[in-house]
């Protein structure tokens, strides 16, 4: 295999791995926007909480209390992180978002998401302190080799888990009664009510799913990012860019845009240097907004969510 081809393949692979991480973060944002037309500024903090949950459940609970080997502990911690995200999403929706939404105002819940974000960040700061934790995945050390292409077991794990999550979400949306009802709510909330669909319940469900995805993303991102109470914000800006490039509320577009941004980032690192990553991504975002403000696949726009 010629070197240049190997290099391109290598960077594409790295890009897909990065992209999968972004997609997991961005999907929750796009899901919430698609169903209830609301931007959730607290999404980053659900990612952070997922990362911390994974860290503590892997490094303390699973290994010390349950005595599991590192690899099993990390895999288990992914589920803990999802559960923590889902639970927190449920609680915050019940305590803050739902009561505000019932007053029939769109702005108040939006601002409340900023408030929740501040609350969660400072809560974690008080609990975990400002010093970064070092969260190592046992899979990072294992390197797999395919000809001249190398990748870590961790990146393989990320791609597999992301594929499962995306596939599961897709199947849920397409083939279950509840998933179809979610799509109905996203298309016409009032008429969904006329079908006997309780949209309050489905909106709560949307937030739980989105938060579980954020928790999952946190568990996978934990070993990659600098784990502090503000860790989520380092990826959330890029996730917002991806959601916009993909067309707000459009799931397919978000997945494509996420992978695309990951690949562009990998090649930027290779050819231009890592300092230019954000510049390239956001120039792309601006170009996108100028040329096609409704997103990547708006032309043959199938549906939101």
């Amino acid at each position: 295999m010629p070197d240049i081809l190997a290099l391109v393949l290598q960077q594409t692979l790295n890009g897909v791995y990065l992209g999968c991480l972004y997609v997991l973060v961005a999907l929750g944002l796009t899901l919430i926007y698609g169903v209830m037309n609301q931007i959730n500024f607290a999404h980053a903090d659900f990612v952070t909480i997922g990362a911390f949950t994974a860290f503590f459940s892997a490094s303390r609970l699973a290994t010390h209390v349950l005595g599991l080997p590192d690899a099993t502990a990390y895999l288990l911690s992914i589920f803990f992180a999802m559960g923590a995200g889902a639970l927190l999403g449920y609680l915050i929706n019940a305590a803050v978002f739902a009561p505000l939404r019932d007053r029939g105002d769109e702005l108040r819940p939006l601002i409340a998401t900023i408030g929740v974000s501040v609350l969660l960040e400072n809560g974690q700061l008080a609990l975990f302190g400002p010093i970064p934790y070092s969260f190592d995945s046992p899979f990072t050390q294992h390197t797999l080799r395919l000809g001249k292409i190398f990748f870590s077991a961790q990146s393989l794990l990320v791609v597999v888990v992301a594929a499962l999550a995306i596939g599961g979400l897709h199947a849920f949306m397409r083939h279950t009664y509840l998933g179809k009802a979610l799509r109905a709510v996203s298309q016409d909330r009032e008429t969904a009510g006329l079908m006997g669909i309780n949209e309050r319940y489905l909106i709560g469900l949307t937030i739980v799913i989105a938060s579980a995805l954020a928790g999952l993303a946190g568990a996978l991102l934990g070993p990659v990012i600098v784990l502090t109470p503000f860790a989520g914000s380092s990826v959330i800006v890029k996730a917002f860019a991806i959601v916009i490039i993909g067309g707000f509320g459009n799931m397919e577009g978000t997945i494509i845009a996420g992978i695309l941004v990951g690949i562009i980032e990998a090649f930027t690192v290779q050819y231009l240097g890592s300092g230019l990553i954000d510049l390239v991504v956001f120039v792309l975002l601006l170009a996108m907004l100028a040329v096609r403000p409704t997103g990547l696949i708006a032309e043959r726009r199938e549906e939101n969510v």
């Binding site: 009802a181 799509r183 109905a184 298309q187 008429t191 006997g196 669909i197 939101n304």
Partner: peptide, 27 residues
């Protein structure tokens, strides 16, 4: 049950899925 003004079918759901939504209470 109300058939709303302007029909308000769910445009991106299939015809069959629209009917399924109508029967949501029997899901």
């Amino acid at each position: 049950a109300l058939v709303p003004e302007g029909r308000r079918v769910f445009p991106y759901l299939t015809v069959r899925e629209n009917l399924e939504m109508g029967g949501f209470r029997y899901r």
